[in-house]
Every structure is written in structure tokens, then in C-alpha cells.
């Protein structure tokens, strides 16, 4: 199995978070309309791109590539626009956390990629807060678990 720490483990955790985010956006999107639904679709596509890049990267490294799961447990029922937007913010913050955790385990181009992913997640979380009318729009330390 994979080591308990190190680059492969950190990137494997980021991949697992990306799988979960992609799955969650399937649930989120159906409760949104118009521009919010388009934004959900774009977010899902962005997570798919990160997923694909991670699978390639981990495969090239010869390590174990974690598999996707058939489904994920939602933290609460997602039944309407409000709960969908709440989940969208949380999914982005959670995924940001996994990319943040990868930073110490990476260097050079790989660290820049992890930072770009962390930043993208943080930006989407901010945009979802704006869509939901939540303030403040930002958190002081994106990805840091409190």
C-alpha cells in the first residue's frame, strides 16, 4: 500500500478529494439554475481536469493510484439551492485543504501546481459565497482546517 506520508500519499489524498468534489457537483448542479448551474458545471470540469492530471502524475511515478468510489455520504441533505450552495462552499474549502496539505510534500513545478489548485478552490469558494449571499466572502487562511 501507499506510505503513510510523503508526496504520493499527499497527492493521493488530493486525488480522493477531487473524486469527491466531482461527485458532489453532480448533486449540487441539479439544484441550481442559470448562471449558478453554469458555474457548477465549470467547477466540475475544473475538478475533472485536476483529477486527470493527478492520475497521470501518480501513474508516472509508479505508485498506487487511489480509485474513485461509487458514491459518497453527504454531510446533510441537499434538497434546494441554499443547501447546494452551502455544500459547494464546503467542498471547495475541503479540497483546498488537501491541496494545501500537499504543499510541504512537493517542490518546484509540482508545488506550483498544488498552489494553483489550492488557489482555484479558494476562488470558487469565494464566488459561491457571493452567489449564496454569505459574508465575509473570504477566509483568512484558505484550506487550513479550523
Amino acid at each position: 500500500m501507499s506510505p503513510t506520508s510523503g508526496p504520493a500519499q499527499a497527492l493521493g489524498d488530493a486525488l480522493a478529494a477531487e473524486y469527491a468534489a466531482i461527485w458532489a457537483y453532480g448533486v449540487i448542479g441539479v439544484h441550481l439554475t442559470e448562471s449558478a448551474r453554469s458555474a457548477a458545471r465549470a467547477a466540475e470540469a475544473a475538478h475533472r481536469a485536476r483529477r486527470d492530471a493527478l492520475i497521470l502524475q501518480l501513474s508516472a511515478g509508479g505508485g498506487q493510484v487511489p480509485a474513485d468510489r461509487a458514491g459518497y455520504a453527504l454531510p446533510y441533505p441537499v434538497t434546494d439551492r441554499a443547501s447546494a450552495l452551502k455544500l459547494a462552499v464546503e467542498i471547495e474549502e475541503r479540497t483546498a485543504g488537501h491541496w494545501r496539505a500537499a504543499l510541504p510534500h512537493t517542490t518546484g513545478a509540482d508545488r506550483n501546481k498544488a498552489l494553483a489548485a489550492l488557489t482555484d478552490c479558494a476562488l470558487r469558494a469565494t464566488r459561491w459565497r457571493r452567489t449564496a449571499g454569505v459574508t465575509p466572502l473570504t477566509v483568512p487562511f484558505p484550506g487550513r482546517q479550523v
Binding site: R100, L115, T126, T138, P142
Partner: peptide
Amino acid sequence: PAERAALLGSIAAARATHLEA
């Protein structure tokens, strides 16, 4: 160095979200 990367990453990401806000 590794032990500073996470904090600096969060600060960079936060500043990006400030631009968005």
C-alpha cells in the same frame, strides 16, 4: 522550505480571493 509552504500557500490563495472580493 517544506515547513513554511502551507502557510505561504494559504496566504497566496487568500490574496487571490481578496482580488475576487
